[in-house]
Design a binder for these strands. Sequence first.
DNA 1: TATATACTGGAATGACCGTTACGCAAATAT
DNA 2: ATATTTGCGTAACGGTCATTCCAGTATATA
Lengths: 191, 191
Amino acid sequence: MGRVQTFETDVVVRAARAVFWQRGFEEASIPELEQATGLRRSSLYNTFGSKRGLFDAAVASYLREVIAPRLRPLTEAPVGADAVVDYLMGMRAGLDDPEADAARHGCLLMNTAGAPVAMEQAVGEAVAAYREELRRALASGIAARHPEAGERERGRLAEAVTALVTSAFALTRVDNAAALRSLDAALDLVD
Amino acid sequence: MGRVQTFETDVVVRAARAVFWQRGFEEASIPELEQATGLRRSSLYNTFGSKRGLFDAAVASYLREVIAPRLRPLTEAPVGADAVVDYLMGMRAGLDDPEADAARHGCLLMNTAGAPVAMEQAVGEAVAAYREELRRALASGIAARHPEAGERERGRLAEAVTALVTSAFALTRVDNAAALRSLDAALDLVD
DNA sequence: TATATACTGGAATGACCGTTACGCAAATAT
DNA sequence: ATATTTGCGTAACGGTCATTCCAGTATATA
């Protein structure tokens, strides 16, 4: 064995994730990532192989540390009747807080949906998979809230609420008020 | 007077618009724009001042020639009871046609919402204004279809349908099927 | 026909990009 | 204590970017 890594990979990825989140993949430059992570190019390339490699790690970290915890009450049984509403209100609070990353920069994945890097198949698939995960989670929350409704009805509702949430994410950067109204509309729909 | 312009500005802007649409602002390079327009850098800079100037012209052209015509049945009185449904179905057909720009590249403005250039205030405002115009148009279409509903109810519905449409635009690049389902959900909502 | 106008072509500029190469320093295993 | 593995710092690479400059040319007016 030789010299051991002196930084914690998770910490570095988290720092890089913040840069990608607020700047987007193509606008985030290597010097910026160096400064944010406190690592030099050589270490970044040695650890992640390329800028894309670092971005992929950032996306994985985002799914694991940002998205999954928020979705957990909707994905792990038992799902309470208030889980959907809690989720939507939590997100509303996040988008209403000017300090929060979500309010200022939306969703890392939704932002990349319209970015050039989304043309690369793997990235596009990651975005699509994320949306599907969100839809499934919302669907189970809706099922818990409206057990009496028909499956078709619930499916439509889940689709609509998913779209409202993604729309809020996509818009908060340029029109925070509209994003909040989207979530209000979602809250209306589920009741 | 001296020598006169040998190209039609509208035609050039339309060609540039197509490049921005499919490639995004930052990924569209000057050489690409030269090739698409058939003009040299000097002429482009002489006419539009900068890449941003050309982009602004492209956005204006997009609003005038692509968006406005589609919205017209919803914005100019009299608005028929079927106008909303026609609009949504027309859009659905567009997103379902693999040849169409809309299906392959979504909406020029929605794509820029998540792009770095959206950080520039004027661009962000243009996107927000577009969304608001869409919402107003859909609201008037919904009012024509459901004159019996309360204003509050119609407002919520308009908000939801707007979000579903923008969500469809934002996603079609990476997940065309999900975009279509969004529009189906919108069609469900208006009836 | 003369002249003013401004479009056009081509080359050059400086900055920044992501990536790579290399040598030294550090820390573990034998 | 030595050998070996690996992190890390520095510097350089080739390429592309948006932008500018200038000379040459075509055309509309007087």
